[in-house]
Simulated assay, not measured.
Amino acid sequence: MLIEVVAAGPGCSICQKALKLVKQAAEEFPQIEIRELNVVDQFERLQELNIFSAGAILMNGKTEFVSLPSPAKLRERMHELLLKSENNPQN
């Protein structure tokens, strides 16, 4: 599973919190890959996805959170998507 965090740069505190949250939650799931989506480099893609806030979290290319979720909510969603992909490998 791929998780992408929308980031405005190293000076963005919300972005850094989102990245830290995702990295901590992903420690339980070794099959998760994490990437940063820079708002400047990925501007067109983010516009297509209607994402206008740094710190948004995408999972498998779909927007899951536009603001910071609780650690429990993030882990729950990761678990749901991983179970879904294990039960239906085509998705």
Results as ranks from 00 to 15, higher is better:
56 A>F: 04
13 S>G: 08
25 A>W: 00
54 A>Q: 12
23 K>E: 01
34 I>E: 00
41 D>L: 14
37 L>N: 03
31 Q>M: 12
73 K>Q: 04
78 M>V: 14
28 E>K: 15
84 K>N: 07
8 A>I: 13
78 M>S: 03
29 F>C: 08
34 I>A: 04
52 F>V: 13
5 V>G: 06
55 G>W: 03
77 R>A: 06
33 E>S: 12
34 I>W: 01
37 L>M: 15
36 E>Q: 08
78 M>G: 05
65 F>P: 01
76 E>V: 13
62 K>E: 10
67 S>R: 07
61 G>K: 03
28 E>T: 12
13 S>F: 14
25 A>H: 00
89 P>Q: 07
4 E>W: 06
3 I>L: 11
30 P>A: 06
78 M>E: 02
69 P>L: 06
79 H>Y: 10
37 L>S: 01
41 D>C: 06
85 S>I: 11
47 Q>C: 14
1 M>W: 09
37 L>P: 00
8 A>H: 07
76 E>A: 10
21 L>T: 02
62 K>C: 05
40 V>E: 04
75 R>N: 03
44 E>C: 02
41 D>Q: 10
46 L>Q: 02
60 N>D: 09
90 Q>V: 12
24 Q>D: 06
29 F>E: 00
64 E>P: 06
14 I>W: 11
66 V>Q: 09
57 I>H: 03
72 A>Q: 10
65 F>D: 02
14 I>G: 00
70 S>Q: 07
10 P>L: 05
62 K>A: 11
10 P>Y: 08
36 E>K: 10
29 F>H: 11
36 E>N: 12
6 V>H: 00
86 E>Q: 13
27 E>A: 05
17 K>L: 04
10 P>Q: 11
85 S>A: 15
16 Q>A: 09
35 R>V: 12
76 E>I: 05
86 E>Y: 08
83 L>C: 15
81 L>V: 11
78 M>T: 03
34 I>N: 00
45 R>Y: 08
82 L>I: 14
45 R>E: 02
27 E>K: 13
89 P>F: 07
27 E>H: 07
15 C>I: 05
52 F>Y: 12
19 L>I: 15
27 E>S: 15
42 Q>Y: 10
9 G>F: 09
50 N>E: 06
73 K>Y: 14
47 Q>D: 00
12 C>N: 08
2 L>C: 11
26 A>S: 10
87 N>R: 15
89 P>R: 05
30 P>S: 07
21 L>Y: 07
30 P>I: 14
75 R>Q: 02
25 A>P: 02
78 M>D: 00
33 E>Q: 13
19 L>E: 06
18 A>T: 04
21 L>N: 02
8 A>T: 15
33 E>A: 12
3 I>Y: 01
91 N>S: 04
60 N>A: 04
6 V>L: 04
8 A>V: 08
53 S>Y: 15
11 G>N: 13
50 N>V: 06
32 I>R: 06
